[in-house]
Protein backbone atom coordinates (compact mmCIF):
# COMPACT_ATOMS: atom_id res chain seq x y z
CA UNK A 1 0.00 0.00 0.00
CA UNK A 2 1.24 3.55 -0.72
CA UNK A 3 2.31 5.77 2.20
CA UNK A 4 -0.71 8.04 1.74
CA UNK A 5 -4.13 6.69 2.65
CA UNK A 6 -5.27 4.04 0.18
CA UNK A 7 -8.30 5.13 -1.85
CA UNK A 8 -11.27 2.82 -1.81
CA UNK A 9 -14.11 2.85 -4.36
CA UNK A 10 -17.36 0.90 -4.25
CA UNK A 11 -19.15 -0.07 -7.47
CA UNK A 12 -22.29 -2.09 -7.94
CA UNK A 13 -23.70 -4.32 -10.67
CA UNK A 14 -26.69 -6.67 -10.61
CA UNK A 15 -27.71 -6.69 -6.96
CA UNK A 16 -29.83 -4.97 -4.32
CA UNK A 17 -27.01 -2.89 -2.80
CA UNK A 18 -27.79 -4.49 0.56
CA UNK A 19 -24.15 -5.36 1.15
CA UNK A 20 -23.07 -1.76 0.75
CA UNK A 21 -25.87 -0.91 3.14
CA UNK A 22 -24.24 -3.27 5.66
CA UNK A 23 -21.03 -1.27 5.23
CA UNK A 24 -22.90 2.03 5.56
CA UNK A 25 -24.45 0.66 8.78
CA UNK A 26 -21.10 -0.05 10.42
CA UNK A 27 -21.42 3.21 12.32
CA UNK A 28 -18.41 4.08 14.44
CA UNK A 29 -16.26 1.42 12.82
CA UNK A 30 -16.87 3.04 9.44
CA UNK A 31 -15.64 6.36 10.85
CA UNK A 32 -12.58 4.55 12.23
CA UNK A 33 -11.99 3.08 8.80
CA UNK A 34 -12.09 6.51 7.15
CA UNK A 35 -9.12 7.51 9.32
CA UNK A 36 -6.96 4.99 7.46
CA UNK A 37 -8.53 4.91 4.01
CA UNK A 38 -10.05 7.51 1.71
CA UNK A 39 -13.43 6.45 0.45
CA UNK A 40 -13.64 8.06 -2.98
CA UNK A 41 -16.71 6.42 -4.42
CA UNK A 42 -19.70 5.07 -2.46
CA UNK A 43 -23.01 6.34 -3.67
CA UNK A 44 -24.99 5.19 -0.64
CA UNK A 45 -23.12 7.55 1.66
CA UNK A 46 -21.63 10.32 -0.50
CA UNK A 47 -22.26 12.29 -3.67
CA UNK A 48 -18.63 12.94 -4.69
CA UNK A 49 -17.22 10.52 -7.23
CA UNK A 50 -13.49 9.94 -7.44
CA UNK A 51 -12.05 8.57 -10.63
CA UNK A 52 -8.85 7.13 -9.16
CA UNK A 53 -8.61 4.45 -6.52
CA UNK A 54 -6.36 1.70 -5.20
CA UNK A 55 -8.89 -0.71 -3.76
CA UNK A 56 -11.93 -1.59 -5.83
CA UNK A 57 -14.86 -3.09 -3.98
CA UNK A 58 -17.31 -4.71 -6.38
CA UNK A 59 -20.82 -5.63 -5.39
CA UNK A 60 -23.20 -7.51 -7.68
CA UNK A 61 -22.99 -10.10 -10.39
CA UNK A 62 -22.28 -9.60 -14.05
CA UNK A 63 -25.31 -10.22 -16.20
CA UNK A 64 -24.89 -8.25 -19.40
CA UNK A 65 -22.31 -7.40 -22.04
CA UNK A 66 -22.30 -3.82 -20.82
CA UNK A 67 -21.62 -4.94 -17.21
CA UNK A 68 -18.76 -7.06 -18.38
CA UNK A 69 -17.10 -4.20 -20.25
CA UNK A 70 -17.62 -1.80 -17.36
CA UNK A 71 -16.14 -4.26 -14.87
CA UNK A 72 -13.04 -4.77 -17.02
CA UNK A 73 -12.61 -1.01 -17.31
CA UNK A 74 -12.92 -0.22 -13.61
CA UNK A 75 -10.83 -3.23 -12.63
CA UNK A 76 -7.97 -2.12 -14.87
CA UNK A 77 -7.41 0.91 -12.64
CA UNK A 78 -7.36 -1.01 -9.33
CA UNK A 79 -4.44 -2.48 -7.41
CA UNK A 80 -6.64 -4.69 -5.24
CA UNK A 81 -10.05 -6.14 -6.11
CA UNK A 82 -12.56 -7.16 -3.47
CA UNK A 83 -15.73 -9.10 -4.26
CA UNK A 84 -18.42 -7.92 -1.86
CA UNK A 85 -21.39 -10.15 -1.14
CA UNK A 86 -22.82 -13.33 -2.64
CA UNK A 87 -23.83 -11.73 -5.98
CA UNK A 88 -20.21 -10.82 -6.63
CA UNK A 89 -18.45 -13.80 -5.02
CA UNK A 90 -20.58 -16.66 -6.37
CA UNK A 91 -23.35 -15.08 -8.41
CA UNK A 92 -25.70 -15.49 -5.44
CA UNK A 93 -29.44 -15.57 -6.07
CA UNK A 94 -28.86 -14.18 -9.57
CA UNK A 95 -27.68 -17.66 -10.55
CA UNK A 96 -31.33 -18.74 -10.48
CA UNK A 97 -31.56 -17.03 -13.84
CA UNK A 98 -29.16 -19.60 -15.27
CA UNK A 99 -31.40 -22.52 -14.35
CA UNK A 100 -33.33 -21.90 -17.56
CA UNK A 101 -32.29 -20.54 -20.96
CA UNK A 102 -32.01 -16.79 -21.34
CA UNK A 103 -34.90 -16.77 -23.83
CA UNK A 104 -37.22 -18.59 -21.47
CA UNK A 105 -36.30 -16.34 -18.57
CA UNK A 106 -36.83 -13.15 -20.58
CA UNK A 107 -40.19 -14.41 -21.70
CA UNK A 108 -41.33 -15.19 -18.18
CA UNK A 109 -40.22 -11.78 -16.91
CA UNK A 110 -41.08 -9.45 -19.80
CA UNK A 111 -43.69 -11.42 -21.72
CA UNK A 112 -43.84 -11.26 -25.48
CA UNK A 113 -42.71 -7.62 -25.82
CA UNK A 114 -39.67 -6.47 -27.74
CA UNK A 115 -36.54 -7.60 -25.88
CA UNK A 116 -35.80 -4.78 -23.39
CA UNK A 117 -32.37 -6.17 -22.47
CA UNK A 118 -30.80 -7.32 -25.70
CA UNK A 119 -27.30 -7.48 -24.26
CA UNK A 120 -28.27 -9.68 -21.27
CA UNK A 121 -25.95 -12.62 -20.56
CA UNK A 122 -26.14 -15.54 -18.15
CA UNK A 123 -25.18 -14.50 -14.61
CA UNK A 124 -21.52 -14.66 -13.65
CA UNK A 125 -19.56 -14.11 -10.46
CA UNK A 126 -17.00 -11.35 -10.94
CA UNK A 127 -14.05 -13.75 -10.75
CA UNK A 128 -15.29 -15.29 -13.98
CA UNK A 129 -14.17 -12.02 -15.59
CA UNK A 130 -11.44 -10.41 -13.45
CA UNK A 131 -9.00 -11.72 -10.87
CA UNK A 132 -10.33 -11.27 -7.34
CA UNK A 133 -7.93 -10.77 -4.41
CA UNK A 134 -10.38 -10.79 -1.51
CA UNK A 135 -13.74 -12.50 -1.10
CA UNK A 136 -16.39 -11.31 1.36
CA UNK A 137 -19.17 -13.85 1.10
CA UNK A 138 -22.74 -13.62 2.31
CA UNK A 139 -26.16 -12.27 1.47
CA UNK A 140 -25.80 -9.80 2.98
CA UNK A 141 -22.19 -9.66 4.10
CA UNK A 142 -21.39 -9.83 7.80
CA UNK A 143 -20.08 -6.41 8.90
CA UNK A 144 -17.29 -7.61 11.20
CA UNK A 145 -15.90 -9.75 8.38
CA UNK A 146 -15.77 -6.72 6.07
CA UNK A 147 -13.64 -4.91 8.66
CA UNK A 148 -11.42 -7.95 9.07
CA UNK A 149 -10.83 -8.02 5.31
CA UNK A 150 -10.06 -4.28 5.30
CA UNK A 151 -7.50 -4.90 8.04
CA UNK A 152 -5.87 -7.61 5.90
CA UNK A 153 -5.79 -5.36 2.83
CA UNK A 154 -4.15 -2.57 4.81
CA UNK A 155 -1.58 -4.97 6.24
CA UNK A 156 -1.02 -6.48 2.81
CA UNK A 157 -1.81 -10.00 3.94
CA UNK A 158 -4.28 -12.49 2.50
CA UNK A 159 -7.66 -13.09 4.12
CA UNK A 160 -8.44 -16.73 4.66
CA UNK A 161 -12.13 -17.42 4.14
CA UNK A 162 -13.16 -20.07 6.70
CA UNK A 163 -13.19 -23.50 5.10
CA UNK A 164 -15.19 -25.05 7.90
CA UNK A 165 -18.98 -25.19 8.09
CA UNK A 166 -21.37 -22.85 9.91
CA UNK A 167 -21.86 -25.60 12.54
CA UNK A 168 -18.49 -24.59 14.04
CA UNK A 169 -19.80 -21.15 14.95
CA UNK A 170 -23.28 -22.39 15.76
CA UNK A 171 -21.93 -24.87 18.33
CA UNK A 172 -19.69 -22.26 19.88
CA UNK A 173 -22.76 -20.09 20.26
CA UNK A 174 -24.45 -23.06 21.95
CA UNK A 175 -27.52 -22.89 19.76
CA UNK A 176 -29.87 -25.83 19.85
CA UNK A 177 -29.24 -27.60 16.54
CA UNK A 178 -32.22 -26.77 14.33
CA UNK A 179 -32.24 -30.37 13.10
CA UNK A 180 -33.36 -31.25 16.61
CA UNK A 181 -36.36 -29.02 16.02
CA UNK A 182 -37.16 -30.89 12.84
CA UNK A 183 -35.92 -28.16 10.48
CA UNK A 184 -33.54 -28.48 7.52
CA UNK A 185 -30.41 -26.43 7.67
CA UNK A 186 -27.58 -26.00 5.18
CA UNK A 187 -25.14 -25.11 7.97
CA UNK A 188 -23.19 -28.40 7.78
CA UNK A 189 -22.13 -27.74 4.17
CA UNK A 190 -21.98 -23.93 4.15
CA UNK A 191 -18.87 -21.81 4.70
CA UNK A 192 -18.70 -20.24 8.14
CA UNK A 193 -17.75 -16.63 8.79
CA UNK A 194 -21.13 -15.10 9.63
CA UNK A 195 -21.04 -16.21 13.29
CA UNK A 196 -24.04 -18.48 12.55
CA UNK A 197 -26.17 -15.40 12.04
CA UNK A 198 -29.45 -17.10 11.13
CA UNK A 199 -29.40 -20.02 13.60
CA UNK A 200 -28.60 -17.54 16.40
CA UNK A 201 -32.12 -16.21 15.83
CA UNK A 202 -33.72 -19.62 15.54
CA UNK A 203 -33.69 -19.71 11.72
CA UNK A 204 -32.04 -22.22 9.41
CA UNK A 205 -28.92 -21.50 7.39
CA UNK A 206 -29.84 -20.98 3.73
CA UNK A 207 -26.30 -21.35 2.42
CA UNK A 208 -25.78 -17.75 1.32
CA UNK A 209 -22.01 -17.91 1.77
CA UNK A 210 -21.69 -20.81 -0.64
CA UNK A 211 -20.50 -24.33 -0.03
CA UNK A 212 -17.33 -25.35 1.77
CA UNK A 213 -14.69 -26.80 -0.54
CA UNK A 214 -15.50 -30.42 0.22
CA UNK A 215 -19.12 -30.60 1.31
CA UNK A 216 -20.08 -34.12 2.32
CA UNK A 217 -23.09 -33.80 0.06
CA UNK A 218 -23.79 -37.50 0.13
CA UNK A 219 -23.72 -37.85 3.89
CA UNK A 220 -25.80 -34.69 4.11
CA UNK A 221 -28.25 -36.24 1.67
CA UNK A 222 -28.56 -39.32 3.90
CA UNK A 223 -29.41 -37.09 6.81
CA UNK A 224 -31.90 -34.99 4.91
CA UNK A 225 -33.53 -38.10 3.53
CA UNK A 226 -33.97 -39.31 7.10
CA UNK A 227 -35.91 -36.12 7.61
CA UNK A 228 -38.08 -36.94 4.62
CA UNK A 229 -36.55 -34.81 1.87
CA UNK A 230 -36.08 -36.11 -1.66
CA UNK A 231 -32.96 -35.52 -3.74
CA UNK A 232 -34.79 -32.95 -5.86
CA UNK A 233 -35.96 -31.06 -2.83
CA UNK A 234 -32.42 -31.09 -1.50
CA UNK A 235 -31.03 -29.79 -4.78
CA UNK A 236 -33.63 -27.08 -4.66
CA UNK A 237 -32.44 -26.08 -1.20
CA UNK A 238 -28.91 -25.85 -2.55
CA UNK A 239 -29.97 -23.91 -5.62
CA UNK A 240 -31.18 -20.73 -3.88
CA UNK A 241 -27.61 -19.63 -3.23
CA UNK A 242 -25.42 -22.43 -4.50
CA UNK A 243 -26.47 -22.69 -8.14
CA UNK A 244 -23.26 -21.05 -9.35
CA UNK A 245 -20.77 -22.95 -11.46
CA UNK A 246 -18.26 -23.63 -8.69
CA UNK A 247 -20.80 -24.59 -6.06
CA UNK A 248 -22.70 -26.90 -8.39
CA UNK A 249 -19.51 -28.72 -9.24
CA UNK A 250 -18.88 -29.25 -5.53
CA UNK A 251 -22.10 -31.04 -4.70
CA UNK A 252 -23.17 -32.55 -7.98
CA UNK A 253 -20.16 -34.82 -8.25
CA UNK A 254 -21.16 -36.41 -4.97
CA UNK A 255 -24.92 -36.09 -4.69
CA UNK A 256 -25.79 -37.54 -8.09
CA UNK A 257 -23.81 -40.72 -7.36
Amino acid sequence: MPKSKPRVAFFEFTDCEGCQLQVANLGLSLLELTKVVDIVNFREIMSEQGKNYDVLVVEGSISSKHDEERLRAIAAKAKVIVALGACATTGGVNNLKNLKSLEEQKKSVYGNVIDPVPDALPTRAIDEIVKVDYYIHGCPIYGPEFLKVMECILLGKPYKVPQYPVCVECKQNENICVYEKGLFCLGPVTRAGCNSWLPNYGNVCVGCRGLIDNPAANAQKDILEKYGLTVDEILEKFSLYCAGKKDRAKYEKEIKK
Binding site: L147, V168, K171, C177, P188, A216, A219
Partner: peptide, 28 residues
Protein backbone atom coordinates in the same frame (compact mmCIF):
# COMPACT_ATOMS: atom_id res chain seq x y z
CA UNK B 1 -21.80 -41.18 7.22
CA UNK B 2 -19.92 -38.23 8.71
CA UNK B 3 -20.83 -34.84 7.23
CA UNK B 4 -17.79 -33.15 8.69
CA UNK B 5 -19.80 -30.67 10.71
CA UNK B 6 -17.06 -30.80 13.43
CA UNK B 7 -19.64 -30.84 16.21
CA UNK B 8 -18.17 -33.94 17.87
CA UNK B 9 -14.87 -32.16 18.43
CA UNK B 10 -16.50 -28.86 19.36
CA UNK B 11 -18.38 -30.36 22.29
CA UNK B 12 -15.69 -32.69 23.62
CA UNK B 13 -14.33 -31.83 27.06
CA UNK B 14 -10.92 -33.28 26.24
CA UNK B 15 -10.33 -31.81 22.77
CA UNK B 16 -7.71 -29.14 23.27
CA UNK B 17 -6.40 -28.30 19.78
CA UNK B 18 -6.18 -24.65 18.96
CA UNK B 19 -5.01 -22.30 16.25
CA UNK B 20 -3.26 -19.01 16.92
CA UNK B 21 -4.41 -15.84 15.20
CA UNK B 22 -3.45 -12.17 15.27
CA UNK B 23 -6.00 -9.38 15.10
CA UNK B 24 -4.72 -5.89 14.40
CA UNK B 25 -7.00 -2.93 14.93
CA UNK B 26 -7.69 -0.42 12.20
CA UNK B 27 -4.97 1.92 13.53
CA UNK B 28 -2.61 -0.80 12.23
Amino acid sequence: RCVGCTNCTAVCPTCYCFDVIDDVSLNL
